[in-house]
């Protein structure tokens, strides 16, 4: 069958299935516990106890099937070794110690740490800056839309765009990469293969994620800035604060919690970063990150044990930030 048709059928089945599930399950509940008759009051109370679970059930099922089970299975695989011809043998922490002995793993750890420091900070700071600067100007919304747009591009798509930006053509021919075009024009020297300079190439990759995440930070922080009572700003102006003091001493402290939520949300994204590195350098030239390392081990080297161990490391790093983030977001909502 035509893949487009197949896709359409899947979508329609899914949507209709969802609507049907919620409609029918609630219908059945109402039929079993009718809101009339001698036990109407008791039935309503009982139905109200059950109804939330009807709505939660599909999500809970999907989460346990696709999230909880893989976590346990990954943990199990990380403690086993595959033997040739099928079957597993207990390996204990061998996979972990093998991984800890590999320089590529430590390179990935170092790069992840670097990403962790630079990307959330840069994306949040730029997002905050844009949110503040576009707040009062007529074309601010157009600027915001443009900056938000990269959010709509997939990581791989963004990587392709930026790979073209960093592209290098042989000396003498026209440079189609913007960076090299500028560099050749301004310095008069030959083109550079930017993505092959160890250490600095990490930053060239980070630019892609910053480019994407700034829009996210901007939207959230812009809403937060709008929520600041205007009088506190006016009071600060009357108190003699200049625009910088108003921004840093009155506005930023008032949206501190939102800034932290944005920061940590981006942090989680950064820890999981895979597509950008995979599509642009595939971890070569010392740009390896944990997620790509995991992929390499799992699907290229076919070493399920070490690959799973790497996955567990990523999960262990993400979990505390995620827990803190969810808690913070819930406090914010209260």
């Amino acid at each position: 069958m035509n893949p487009v048709m197949l896709g359409l059928i899947t979508i329609v089945t899914g949507v209709v299935g969802c609507i049907g599930y919620f409609f029918l399950s609630n219908l059945i509940l109402d039929a079993v516990l009718p809101a009339r008759g001698p036990n109407a009051g008791r039935n309503i109370n009982r139905a109200n106890l059950i109804r939330p679970w009807l709505f939660l059930l599909p999500a809970l099922t999907a989460l346990s099937l696709y999230l909880a089970y893989p976590v346990i299975e990954t943990l199990r695989l990380s403690l086993l070794d595959r033997v040739q011809g099928g079957g597993y043998v207990w390996a204990g922490f061998d996979n972990y110690s093998q991984m800890l002995g590999e320089p590529k793993f430590w390179e990935a750890m170092r790069n992840n740490l670097l990403w962790l420091i630079v990307v959330p900070a840069a994306a949040t700071a730029l997002g905050l800056l844009v949110a503040q600067l576009t707040d009062r100007i007529a074309w601010g919304n157009i600027a915001k839309s443009l900056i938000f747009m990269p959010m709509a591009i997939s990581f791989v798509g963004a990587s392709v765009i930026w790979k073209l930006v960093y592209d290098a053509r042989p000396e003498g021919s026209d440079q189609i990469g913007v960076l090299n075009a500028l560099y050749v024009w301004m310095s008069g020297e030959g083109p550079q293969t930017w993505l092959t300079f160890p250490f600095w190439n990490n930053f060239f990759l980070m630019v892609v994620l910053i480019w994407i995440q700034t829009g996210f930070a901007m939207v959230i922080l812009s809403a937060a800035l709008r929520g600041i009572p205007e009088e506190t700003v006016e009071a600060a102006i009357l108190d003699g604060a200049n625009p910088f003091q108003v921004f840093f001493r009155i506005k930023v402290p008032q949206i501190k919690n939102t800034i932290l939520v944005v920061w940590t949300t981006i942090t989680v994204t950064v820890l999981k970063v895979f597509d950008i590195v995979f599509a642009m350098t595939n971890g070569q030239w010392e740009t390896q990150v944990l997620a790509n390392y995991m992929y390499d081990k799992m699907f290229r080297a076919n070493d399920w044990g070490v690959g799973s161990a790497a996955a567990m490391v990523v999960m262990l790093l993400v979990t505390p930030i995620l827990v803190w983030n969810v808690r913070n977001a819930r406090r914010e909502m209260r």
Binding site: P229, E231, T232, E234, A235, A236, I237, L238, D239, G240, A241, R249, I250, P253, Q254, K256
Partner: peptide, 27 residues
Amino acid sequence: AQRGIAMVFQSYALYPHLTVRENMAFA
């Protein structure tokens, strides 16, 4: 700030992240 005036707002307009002392000390 240089007019020699001070204003009390209807909504108080206190700086929510500063203590009473810091609110008064801000200017």
